[in-house]
Amino acid sequence: MSEWAAKRFWTAAEAVAQGAGHSVELDGRAVKTPSKAPLVVPSRAMAEAVAAEWRAQGERIDPMSMPVTRGANAAIDRVRVQHAEVADMLADYGDSDLLCYRAEAPAELVSRQAAAWDPLLDWAGDTFGARLSPRTGIMHEAQDPEALARLRREVHALDAFDLTAFHDLVSLSGSLVIGLAAERGAHDPEALWAASRIDETWQEELWGADEEAADVAAKKRGAFLDAVRFLALARAE
């Protein structure tokens, strides 16, 4: 299949071995990405997940209900061909990492941020030798170049499928460190997402939840957890 179709046209969707990887066939025909590249994924588990998404479709195809398929398409069509650019863009989050920009007041918010964010900064320091420094206010202050260089090397070491998941982990949370913690499985994904939402949660407690904002937040949370799952599938034996 070369592009998203409006209507279902197949009966069976099956994962099959494809060289060193795995692909999916619809009634015996190999699925292709939107750019017409072979959709070959790194693990049997990911291929089975893609096949399950195709099997679950009704009469009309809903791409938004197929996060693993969409992620595989992105890895092959976009991330693989511009790996260095994507890696640099994500590594740049380190110099303005969410975890480093702290409130000056009120005291309870300051305490919440420190309790959730300091351990993550400590973890990055212990794991990568790259301890980013917090500061108060919203004005940008550059981080230590050597620390940023070490984190950048970690990002560039990710392959196309890992980097695809990592893109969502970082961009949705606003934090390179949170993305790395999720990528390494160092912290519970739900706890990491909650850590990225401390400021928003505080505002909701003060002023009440906005229905539209809550809906957007729920979709972002779902996408963050989908990225964690995509990463696990890519690395499955």
Rank of each mutant, 00 (worst) to 15 (best):
223 A>Q: 11
188 D>A: 10
55 R>K: 14
88 D>K: 15
223 A>Y: 01
92 D>W: 11
224 F>L: 01
110 V>A: 13
111 S>L: 12
25 E>D: 10
227 A>M: 02
230 F>C: 04
128 F>Y: 14
51 A>F: 08
144 D>C: 09
70 R>F: 05
64 M>D: 14
145 P>A: 13
165 A>K: 03
6 A>N: 05
44 R>V: 05
178 I>C: 09
195 A>K: 00
148 L>P: 05
80 R>H: 10
155 V>W: 06
220 K>A: 11
92 D>L: 13
84 A>S: 09
144 D>F: 02
73 N>L: 08
37 A>V: 02
159 D>V: 00
221 R>K: 12
88 D>Q: 15
197 R>W: 12
205 E>Y: 06
65 S>R: 13
136 T>W: 04
93 Y>K: 06
160 A>I: 07
199 D>Q: 15
51 A>K: 01
45 A>C: 07
157 A>S: 09
169 L>S: 04
167 H>L: 11
25 E>P: 01
24 V>N: 08
142 A>P: 05
96 S>G: 14
189 P>Q: 00
170 V>D: 03
27 D>P: 04
108 E>V: 14
65 S>E: 10
174 G>D: 03
101 Y>V: 06
94 G>L: 08
44 R>G: 05
199 D>M: 14
230 F>Y: 09
215 D>Y: 14
35 S>K: 15
102 R>L: 13
1 M>F: 13
128 F>E: 09
168 D>N: 12
175 S>G: 05
1 M>R: 11
126 D>Y: 10
190 E>M: 06
184 R>T: 08
185 G>V: 01
99 L>N: 04
156 H>Y: 10
30 A>T: 12
224 F>V: 00
24 V>S: 01
102 R>M: 04
63 P>A: 00
201 T>A: 15
233 L>E: 00
217 A>S: 12
103 A>T: 10
31 V>E: 05
13 A>P: 06
86 V>M: 04
181 A>W: 07
121 L>V: 08
201 T>D: 15
19 G>N: 02
11 T>D: 07
38 P>V: 07
113 Q>H: 07
31 V>G: 02
95 D>V: 06
164 T>P: 05
39 L>Q: 02
203 Q>L: 14
189 P>C: 04
222 G>W: 10
